[in-house]
Each structure stands twice: as C-alpha cells, then as structure tokens.
C-alpha cells in the first residue's frame, strides 16, 4: 500500500541525510521524496511516498519522530488532498508527428517547452495517474528520456471538503 507522509523538519544541515539514512537502515521502502521551503524559512516540508502495510507505516512514523529535527508528521488522506507531480519528457518525433504530439499535450494541459528537429520536450503537472496516462500515450512515439519530481501534496482547506 502507498502512503503519503507530509513531514515538517527544521532546516538544519544534514536533515535530508538523516531522513534518507533512516529509511535505508531500517529497511523501509521510499517511493519518492520531495523537499522544499515553506512559509517559514526555518522549516522545510518533505513529502514522502512510502510503500508498506499499516505496521510498516507505524514504525516509519515512530522512527521519524525520534529524529531530533523532525517537527511534525501527517499522513495525508488521498481523498482530501491536492497532490501534484511534475514531469519533463523528451519525445522523439518526426516533422510529421509533431502536430499529433502537440494535440496530445494540449489534451493533458501540458506545455511544449523545447522543440528540436527530431524531438519535443513536454512539461506536465498533475496527479500520478494523469502523468502515467500521458507517458503511456507518448510511448508509441519513443521516449528519449524523462524526469519526474515525485509527489508534493497539501491537505485541502476545511471549507473545500
């Protein structure tokens, strides 16, 4: 099972190493990990996607709490969050295929960010499912390379529920 953890940490040197190290030495599976600044310059927020059952999740949470620089851990409920992932894909394409690929990108509200004689680069954001669907459609043309940021997520405001 996949769990999304939102972890607030004090922005101290080595905090990322501490968290990544904890996952590897306790044999927990990390699917993606994302770090960024928050509204408070002293605090960073990590969005960690973890694989495992409830027991694994409980241990992950408790072990994370033992790190001195970890302030708060929230498991995000998939039904009440906004989650986003960003992808950059370079797709091989001939001149003839260009318009077809641009149409597909439009459908996914993705943008063409680079055009070369034999390829296009597409930037898209959205949920994991959406990005996987886009990647799947583009696979026929030949994907030269792609990179994804992993999920970032926040809980929705109360009123929006």
């Amino acid at each position: 099972m996949t769990h999304i953890l939102s972890v607030s940490v004090l922005n101290k040197p080595g905090v990322l190493t501490r968290i990544a190290g904890l996952f590897s030495r306790r044999n927990f599976n990390i699917e993606s990990l994302n770090v960024g600044k928050t509204e408070n310059p002293e605090i960073s927020r990590m969005t960690i996607v973890v694989q495992g059952d409830e027991k694994v999740l409980e241990q992950v949470t408790k072990q994370l709490h033992k790190l001195i620089n970890v302030l708060k851990i929230t498991e995000l409920d998939k039904n009440s969050i906004v989650e986003r992932d960003l992808i950059l894909i370079r797709v091989k394409c001939t001149r003839k295929q260009r318009s077809e690929i641009i149409q597909i990108a439009d459908t996914f509200r993705a943008q063409i960010v680079d055009v070369a004689p034999d390829s296009l680069m597409i930037e898209a954001t959205g949920t994991e499912d959406k990005l996987e669907a886009l990647t799947e459609l583009l696979r026929d043309f030949g994907i030269a390379e792609f990179v994804r940021t992993g999920i970032v997520a926040l809980s929705r405001g109360q009123a929006a529920k």
Binding site: K55, Q59, K62, K66
Partner: peptide, 8 residues
C-alpha cells in the same frame, strides 16, 4: 519511554 519500541 520510546514509542518506536512498541510493536517493533
């Protein structure tokens, strides 16, 4: 005293 020991 260590919550992580519980259920480990």
């Amino acid at each position: 005293i260590d919550p992580a020991e519980i259920g480990k």
